[in-house]
Simulated assay, not measured.
Amino acid sequence: MAKKKPTILVVNDDGITAPGIKVLLEEMQKIGDVVVVAPDSPQSGMGHAITIGRPLRLDKIDLYAGVEMYKCSGTPVDCVKLAVNKIFKGKKPDLCVSGVNHGLNYSINVLYSGTMSAAVEGAIEDIPSIGFSLDDFSHQADFSHCRPYIRAIAEQVLENGLQKATLLNVNFPHHSKEIKGIKICRQATAKWFEEFDERVDPYEREYFWMTGKFQLLDKGEDTDVFALSNGYVSVVPTQFDMTAHHAITDLNSWTFNVANAK
């Protein structure tokens, strides 16, 4: 008896027509039955935003032959929520993959990323989930070196599963770098130092254009930043429980003088 193919939900934040999602769905077609639900326009930097107070549109489209695809008017997280509730109707897929993002989602960027937030939402729904990103913002980005790793990582997740409330954040070096292998890493400590360029529009109203510089605050050789800079695919096990467990004991030693605060 033939083994049943896994069902795989493919999402992204760059939009339904992005080259990265085409690469991802093509690789997933080799191992399972694919359903694509993606935003109808780019949604980069949306984080875990959801749509409240306005309608959500979900339209079936025929973009690639033989692929069940839907475009959504909402955010990447909306795409996952609608897929689970309206397309799969509560019968959850075996895997959720997000990407391949045009641009890295390493270190602190995971908090801002629509790509990773879609994967996080999959994990919240108890679906094994992976976010994939490439170090190339170009619309003509070369994803060819990522393909075998995408498939290999997805197959391992399907075979072994992931711990509850855990997902994978996978980042690929630029195609100009020879990939040396895969490194299981931790998220590097870093932050963005933003600047806001002040400008004036044609109506003489002031507006701001955000720019910034990424500053690595971590010298460790076990991080995603270090792995990528040295030609490795970084794989970071990620969780959505944001509790700082190490701080609970310290906080329990505090004395809260509520009476004196009145």
Rank of each mutant, 00 (worst) to 15 (best):
L134E: 08
G212T: 05
E198H: 14
K183F: 09
E178Q: 14
K22E: 06
F240P: 03
N160C: 07
N171W: 00
A244L: 09
I52M: 14
E204V: 00
K191I: 00
S44N: 15
A259T: 13
S107T: 03
Y232A: 02
V23F: 15
T249W: 06
D197N: 13
D13Q: 06
G212H: 10
L168W: 13
D241C: 08
F196T: 14
V10P: 02
N257A: 02
S107V: 00
E121V: 03
S176T: 11
V233R: 05
L217D: 11
D222V: 06
C185N: 10
H145T: 06
P76F: 08
S107N: 11
I150G: 01
L104W: 11
G103A: 05
V258D: 07
K22P: 00
A227S: 12
K164P: 05
A141T: 03
M242D: 08
I153D: 08
E195S: 11
D78A: 08
K183W: 06
D250H: 04
A247F: 10
Y232W: 14
E206L: 12
M46R: 11
K81Y: 01
F256Q: 07
V235P: 04
L216N: 15
T238A: 09
L216M: 13
H245G: 10
V37I: 12
A154Q: 02
L111F: 13
C79S: 13
G99F: 11
K4S: 14
K22G: 01
I108T: 05
Y70E: 06
A38I: 04
E26I: 00
G66P: 07
D13G: 02
D201L: 04
G181H: 13
W209S: 15
V120L: 10
I52Y: 09
V233N: 03
V67G: 05
K177D: 08
L24G: 01
R54F: 07
I179K: 07
G47T: 06
F226D: 12
F193D: 11
K30R: 12
F132R: 00
I130S: 01
Y203S: 15
V97Q: 06
D224Y: 08
T243D: 14
I124P: 02
G220K: 15
E159D: 11
V37C: 11
F137G: 00
M1S: 13
A2L: 14
K4V: 15
L63I: 03
I248V: 14
N252S: 10
S41N: 07
L111S: 10
Q156F: 03
G131Q: 07
Q43T: 15
F256L: 12
E27R: 05
I130E: 04
A165F: 02
I127Q: 04
M69I: 02
V23S: 07
H145L: 06
M242L: 14
Y149S: 04
A119N: 07
K92I: 11
M46W: 05
S98I: 05
S73K: 10
A165C: 06
F214D: 09
Q29D: 00
S144W: 14
R54M: 10
R199E: 13
G131T: 00
M210T: 15
P6C: 09
D222S: 15
